[in-house]
Amino acid sequence: MYESILVPTDGSEISATAAEEAIELADDGGTIHALAVVEALPMYKQSGKGAKLEGSDESEARAYLTDATDRIEAMADDAGVDCETKITSGVPHREIVSYAEENDADVIVMGKRGQGAAANDILGSTTERVVERSSSKVLTVPEA
């Protein structure tokens, strides 16, 4: 269905569910892009998993997110779908939208809410910001 699919991940179960959905949507010869963002904000402003890594350094966050992108890559490999992974630093919604534009993503598939689910009623703040700012289609996947 889609040739280039971006799957942002924060390591949450919902981002793994979104990856499963993305793999199902991939065309033969399509590529999944697993992107994780180390949140570059002061700790008091961080959302989601970043807040749970309080007191840790960036290398610990990168190791956690490497595991998350590696899991998505393994899922894609098992399904015979190409996968590229990237971990970057910055403001998550900005990095996601930028990556989608730079890589001509046909669609962004992400969970409605990730690690910071308790802070938002309908959509997670990152998901909401991506939906508002992206020129790509955005498919939001609900929690099971």
Rank of each mutant, 00 (worst) to 15 (best):
E3C: 00
S4L: 02
V7M: 06
D10Y: 10
S12V: 04
I14C: 03
S15Y: 02
A16L: 14
T17S: 06
A19C: 03
E20G: 06
E24R: 09
L25I: 06
T31F: 00
T31K: 14
L35Y: 05
A36D: 08
V38A: 14
A40R: 13
L41M: 13
P42Y: 11
P42S: 11
Y44W: 09
Q46Y: 00
Q46G: 00
K49Q: 13
K49C: 02
L53G: 09
S56K: 15
S56N: 11
S59W: 04
L65V: 06
D67K: 14
T69W: 08
E73S: 15
D82E: 12
C83W: 10
C83V: 13
C83A: 15
I87T: 06
I87S: 02
T88E: 08
T88K: 04
G90L: 09
G90T: 11
V91K: 13
H93I: 05
R94T: 13
E95I: 04
I96F: 07
I96K: 01
I96H: 03
A100G: 07
E102K: 15
D104T: 10
A105P: 01
A105V: 11
D106A: 05
V109F: 10
M110S: 02
G111E: 03
K112R: 11
G114L: 03
A117H: 08
A119Q: 14
A119R: 14
A119F: 06
I122T: 12
L123F: 08
E128H: 08
V130F: 03
R133D: 11
R133Q: 14
S136C: 05
T140N: 02
V141F: 04
V141I: 13
